[in-house]
Simulated assay, not measured.
Amino acid sequence: MLVKVFPIELKPGRQAAMEELVREFAPIGPGQEPGTVSFRVYRDKNRPDYLLFVEHFADQAAYDAHTTSEVYNKLIAGQFANEIVEFVELDHELVASHL
């Protein structure tokens, strides 16, 4: 399993709009992708204009399919990317899980 974590600093005042955009994206992007195991976006109540993406993919091929989809390119690489001040892409490997 491939785990991607993205801490993202947004442009000032863009929190609400970007939360709405990821709510729109989740069911029509990751929600339709067979290799996307989970897609979660978190806010930090103590840090405005910040979102944390935590995504689980079956493998690298699933992640590649996710990031090359039409909806990803329109909403995330397009609209969302224009509202980012800074982000980091962190790869992780799952060690343990309990659901």
Rank of each mutant, 00 (worst) to 15 (best):
V54G: 00
Q32L: 12
A17L: 04
Q15F: 04
T36A: 15
N73E: 13
G29N: 07
P12G: 09
M18R: 02
Y72C: 06
R43F: 02
K4A: 13
P30Q: 06
L10S: 04
A58H: 10
P30N: 09
P48C: 06
K11P: 00
E24G: 03
T68H: 13
R47L: 12
R47H: 09
E20C: 01
A65Y: 06
G13N: 09
P27I: 10
P12D: 13
E55V: 11
D44E: 13
K11D: 05
E9A: 14
N46T: 12
A26E: 13
Y50P: 02
T67M: 07
Y63S: 01
P12E: 14
P7D: 12
T68C: 02
N46D: 14
A58W: 01
M18I: 11
N46H: 10
F53A: 03
E55T: 08
R43H: 10
S38N: 11
D49N: 15
I8C: 05
F57R: 10
R23V: 11
H56Q: 13
V3E: 05
E70F: 03
K4S: 10
P7M: 11
D59I: 09
F57M: 08
R43P: 00
D59N: 15
V54Q: 09
L51G: 01
V22I: 15
V54F: 14
R14C: 05
E33M: 10
A61P: 00
T36E: 01
K11H: 09
A17Q: 14
V37G: 02
L2Y: 13
Q32P: 06
F6K: 11
L10P: 08
P12S: 14
Q32Y: 00
K4I: 15
P30Y: 03
P48A: 07
F53I: 06
G29H: 03
G13S: 09
T68R: 12
G35Q: 07
D64G: 04
V37W: 01
K45Y: 05
H56S: 09
V3K: 14
P34A: 08
E19P: 00
R14K: 15
D59K: 12
H66M: 09
G13W: 03
E55M: 11
M1V: 12
V41N: 02
M1A: 12
L21A: 07
G31T: 11
A17Y: 03
G13A: 07
L21D: 02
R40K: 11
A26R: 12
P27L: 12
I28T: 11
R14D: 01
H56K: 13
P12K: 10
Y50W: 13
F39K: 01
I28G: 04
N46L: 12
E24A: 12
Y50S: 05
G31I: 08
K45P: 01
F25S: 04
F53Y: 14
K11T: 06
L21Y: 02
V3T: 14
E19W: 02
I8P: 00
F57C: 08
E9G: 01
Y63L: 15
I8K: 05
A61C: 04
P27H: 11
D49I: 06
Q15P: 00
G13H: 06
P30E: 06
L10N: 05
V41G: 00
D59Q: 10
P7K: 11
R40P: 00
V22P: 03
V41K: 02
D49W: 01
L10F: 09
I28M: 13
K45M: 06
H66T: 10
F57I: 08
S69M: 08
T68E: 09
K45D: 11
P48I: 07
